[in-house]
Nucleic acid binder design. Structure first.
Ligand code: SF4
Ligand code: SF4
Lengths: 140, 140
DNA sequence: CTTTAGTAGACTATTTTGGTCTATTAAGGA
DNA sequence: TCCTTAATAGACCAAAATAGTCTACTAAAG
């Protein structure tokens, strides 16, 4: 049971808080780490990864911090999970059949490819904006 | 990247071979291990797990082996994956919100619950019979 | 020129994965 | 009755991934 590890879980909580507190000033990770009860040094690595993936922008020095690089509606959860889990697909062979000698006649590969597609379709269809308002949707 | 580990991958290949070679006699794991190039001792543990889950039946002693406990159409891939990965859901909290103090107001939980549902819906909808004929479907 | 905060990268502990080994039990056949 | 085959049970183990931690450094505000 992984696929969604603490990297994605912490990362999404970071993004939702950045979306909530978005404004003129960037938000420092220390405050997010305290609010969300996530180890700050660990969170800083996740933020760096999300920056490298183009999801976040940062400002250094005092009063620095992070902000979203795009609008919440334009950030898919798929891009967040792919960046943080560092994976392209569920199994190597669904992406690149050449890595397995059996892939030509493999009867199980279509099953796993289908699962991979189901997962990616779902995650692609949910944006940070959807996630950020989820609790409100549920309270109607 | 796990969720589908070698346990599920090897296990499904075992089940497909059992479905293919189904007949009056049970099939010994040694021959499956050789055909599929899977370590026999590891495969024997997977088979034992699938037996415990009610997916397989076994006969001991010489000329013994394993056979499917039900028809391939009546074995969902979900039941196979759940048995072999030993999981009930993607995250503990989607099953039992009480384990996390934040679950009450958690904004990320609905996202992961939705993913869990997408995965389970897909796996529940594919049977061993579907998987066993997959290569034929693709060659039409 | 001090404080705050991101950046870079080595390092570590714990858990999970992917096995292996040994010994035992049950059934078939000579 | 013995020998062989094959499942069963469970301890054991090495490698990889996960979830951090630590140290040193750089950039900007005041
Ligand atoms: S055996 Fe099939 S599912 Fe497994 S790695 Fe090879 S192609 Fe992929
Ligand atoms: S913070 Fe949310 S997603 Fe994470 S374990 Fe708690 S309830 Fe689940």
């Amino acid at each position: 049971m992984s696929l969604i590890t603490t990297r994605s879980r912490y990362g999404l909580r970071l993004l939702i808080e950045l979306a909530d507190r978005a404004g003129s000033a960037p938000i420092d990770l220390g405050s997010v780490a305290r609010n969300q009860d996530i180890p700050e040094l660990y969170l800083s690595k996740l933020a760096a990864t999300l920056k490298a993936a183009g999801v976040l922008r940062s400002e250094r020095g005092a009063k620095g911090g992070y902000r979203l690089a795009r609008r919440p509606e334009d950030i898919s959860i798929l891009s967040v999970v792919e960046a943080l889990e560092g994976r392209s697909s569920l199994l190597e062979c669904t992406d690149d059949p050449a890595i397995c000698a059996r892939s030509g006649e493999c009867r199980t590969l279509p099953v796993w490819s289908g699962l991979d597609k189901a997962i990616n379709d779902y995650l692609r269809g949910v944006s940070l904006a959807d996630a950020a308002v989820a609790v409100i949707d549920y309270s109607i």
